[in-house]
Amino acid sequence: MAEIYGSYAMFHQRGGADHAIRDSQNNTLRSRSGTLLQRFIAWAQPPDWGSLLDIGCGTGPLLQSAAHLRPGWTLAGAEQDDRVRDRILGIPGVALFHAGPLSALDARFDVVSMVHVLEHVADPAGFLRQAASLLAPGGRLLVQVPSLAENPFDLTIADHCSHFTADTLTRVVRSAGLKILHVDRWIPKELSVVAGLPERAAGDPPAMPETGSTAEPTVDLATVERMVAWLHAMGETVEHLAAAGPLGLLGTSVAATWLASQAEDRVSFFMDEDPVMQGTRFLGRPVLAMERVPSSATLFCPMPSAQAHAIRERLVRMKAAFRIEIPPPLPRSVL
């Protein structure tokens, strides 16, 4: 992990821009961080004035969204080093940038956010306790992680120390001594948890960590092994499809990146619906818009089959002229 983060650049293939996700209501592309923050605000109804710290702020997409959605808030960002300091301090409303351990930060915030951070740390409960110590009275901790149960491709990411389900995420939040306030799936294939400090009367002893689970079963080792087998089957599928003609992969995120690395030279191109990526090259291959994909080509959707099926139907409605293939369903015992 030290080697990875020593040369890591957030969203490097996108020039530092946040991931775009498709809004199912109006079929438009929106910032992932902006969508998450908007849905958190709709649920929490925070006042127009307050303070927010984004831990693991990266290039600042959540802080930029906060500056737009809550211009009265005082904002702060935290990272492991100083590489993005100037970029973060240039965001309207950002008054503080902190580099280094959270224990050295002497401040309190109404909202502390951790978007795609917890899966990267070796001691998630301990890290949550550090983050919770930065909450003001009545403050809210917003945690966002990938959902393993919905997306087995999370297993392919080398620097993810933990892979969360709704059950395991709520367990680790409770083990940090925090109170679960809300669990949701505000972003597709991701889990959102809002937590707060437990309330206690003056003189009461500190609250003990909670125990218990959600209705979702814990993903056990046998389930993970079935997920791994399903992932390896994708490579066989790509080899079969590539033998019939030009083959492309949908998207340029984790799933397509991993599968292209497994398929070596069998993948000819990527297709991405995000205009930021169209016309660029990724892993040495062109990134095409839908209308630039040859009619003789096959497009493979490397994602869980339910989502891939919905995307195929949408592309067909958009008059895609090429063949679209999707993976087989995950075993029922997985989801």
Rank of each mutant, 00 (worst) to 15 (best):
E3M: 10
I4A: 09
G6N: 04
S7A: 13
Y8T: 00
F11M: 13
Q13T: 14
R14Q: 13
R14L: 15
A17V: 02
H19A: 11
H19I: 11
R22H: 05
S24N: 05
Q25F: 08
L29R: 12
R30T: 13
R32P: 10
S33R: 03
G34M: 07
T35F: 09
L37T: 06
Q45H: 15
I55H: 08
G56K: 03
G56F: 06
G60M: 01
P61S: 08
Q64P: 03
H68P: 03
P71W: 12
P71Q: 10
L75M: 06
A78C: 13
E79V: 02
R83A: 06
V84R: 07
V84Q: 09
R85P: 04
I88H: 02
L89P: 06
G90S: 14
G90L: 05
P92R: 07
P92L: 06
V94L: 09
L96I: 05
F97T: 05
G100L: 10
L102G: 10
S103G: 12
L105W: 07
D106V: 11
V111I: 15
V111T: 13
V112D: 10
S113K: 06
V121W: 03
P124Y: 02
A125M: 01
G126T: 03
R129V: 04
A131V: 07
A132Q: 05
L134C: 08
L134V: 05
G138E: 05
L141N: 02
Q144A: 11
P146F: 02
S147M: 03
A149Y: 09
P152N: 08
D159I: 11
C161Q: 13
H163R: 14
F164C: 02
T165C: 07
L169Q: 08
T170M: 14
V173T: 14
V173N: 08
L178V: 12
I180L: 14
I180E: 09
L181V: 10
H182N: 14
H182W: 12
R185W: 11
E190S: 15
E190M: 15
S192H: 10
L197M: 14
P198I: 09
E199S: 12
A202Q: 14
A207Y: 08
T211R: 15
A215G: 10
P217A: 00
T218Y: 10
E225Y: 13
E225R: 15
M227R: 04
A229F: 00
L231W: 07
E239D: 14
L241Q: 11
A242P: 09
P246C: 12
G248I: 07
L249P: 07
V254N: 10
A256I: 00
T257M: 04
W258N: 01
A260S: 11
F269G: 02
F269Q: 01
D274K: 00
D274Q: 02
D274F: 00
D274L: 01
P275V: 01
M277R: 10
Q278H: 06
G279Q: 14
F282E: 03
A289G: 15
M290L: 15
M290Y: 08
E291S: 11
V293Y: 05
A297S: 12
F300S: 01
P304T: 01
A306P: 03
A308V: 00
I311N: 00
R312I: 00
E313T: 08
R317T: 07
K319I: 00
A321S: 14
E325C: 14
P327Y: 04
P329Q: 03
S333D: 15
V334C: 15
